[in-house]
Design a protein around this nucleic acid. Sequence first.
DNA 1: ATCACAGCGGAGACTATGGA
DNA 2: TCCATAGTCTCCGCTGTGAT
Length: 432
Amino acid sequence: MSSMRDRMNRLRGESTKVDIVAEETNIEFKSLAEPDQAEHPDRLSPGWAAFGVELATNETGSFLRRVTRYPMDYRHGLHALQELYAAAPGLAAFHPSEQSAAEQILFLDLETTGLGVGAGNVPFMVGIGYMSKGHFVIEQTLIRHPAEERAMLMYLAEKLQQFSFLSTYNGKTFDWPLVESRFIMNGLGRKMWEPKHLDFLHPARSIWRNTLVSCKLSHVEEERLGIERVDDVPGSLAPQLYFQYLADGNPAPLEGVFKHNETDMLSLASLAIRFGHLLNGNIEAYIPLPDEPEEMVRTGLWLERMGRKELPSQLFDLFMSIQHSKPSTLVKLAARDKKAGNWGRAVLLWQKAIIHSPTHFGPAAHEASIELAMYYEHKLKNYDSALSYVNTAFEHALHQSSLFRADTKRKAELEALRNRIARLRRKALKTI
DNA sequence: ATCACAGCGGAGACTATGGA
DNA sequence: TCCATAGTCTCCGCTGTGAT
């Protein structure tokens, strides 16, 4: 096995910190560099070896495979891969009552011939990543024609059984249903593995939906994980490059697809580390604290939804120490405090939301005014203070409706405010 | 005792978005 | 092109409160 490693690294013509090696497996490997196998009908055409691709065969047939092993101290952006060991237990929050360890997680990313999930969409490349013997191993399999799909899937099916968590980006919707349907199409049975999903698209959206222009993996990794892709082939180009290979048999353009898929896998691991740290409560120890106020609040709210109710106070306190925040963010945290019965801070946040929108009395300031009016009316029975907040909201609403066409919603809003004012006036008069 | 209203929370409809 | 997910919005019923 080590001679294979030496050979592959020689073929790469460089000594890198990343080894491309053949893993221990029941798959029989053949290599171009083996002269006695060069005549084999299933031999590999010359171009593949340049980027570490080997021929793999099993009882069902053959396919191509590329294995890349990263040492634990390898840094992909802000995070080193070894952090996954510490971070992984936190990811159990995705599946309460489960325990999670780094070695149980399988990272998966497909390259397919399209975006559909119907029978016409075929995964021509399957990338999997996992922790093994002190390395992060990335295995990428590729089929040269549809007849190789079954062998590749058989190999994948065998691998899956070793893991209990499946980590993807939008894999609940895209990757995994597609894999399942390909298993069925190839007669390999249904529900052969029921993974506990760790789909990072959704937490990414929860946290960054308003602070990043897009929650695409490539954007999140660049903006928040410190990852810069150089000469990356976009995923959307993968089908074209594969069809080009099918047409001319030249594997060279597929190297970019392998690299793209490999980077996706490393970024998935980085995201797992980031979210794992957060869920473990290692907020300051491991990650740069978000400098966007909204991100702090959204991160805190996400941690609460994930059942880590004790963790967000640090983020919320930090948020409170910031001088200027968007009124909409202030109101968001206030709503959470109101629900939790934390009235003191809720009132403070609503007041801040109004103060921070002196010139443009927007929807957040409007909401804050109404909330404060409710608070003063029902909690403190201070009808005069309640009235002053409603009056402010009413004046602005009136001004708005004079600027814009008063639709039914706006009219109903004004009517509700009038009713509220009338009621508060009655109550205020009674208490004199 | 009865009624009206406000507020709240749950259910369901709707929408935007990511994956190649 | 499709669809799971989460966020938003709307509707409805329940509860508490205050007025009659």
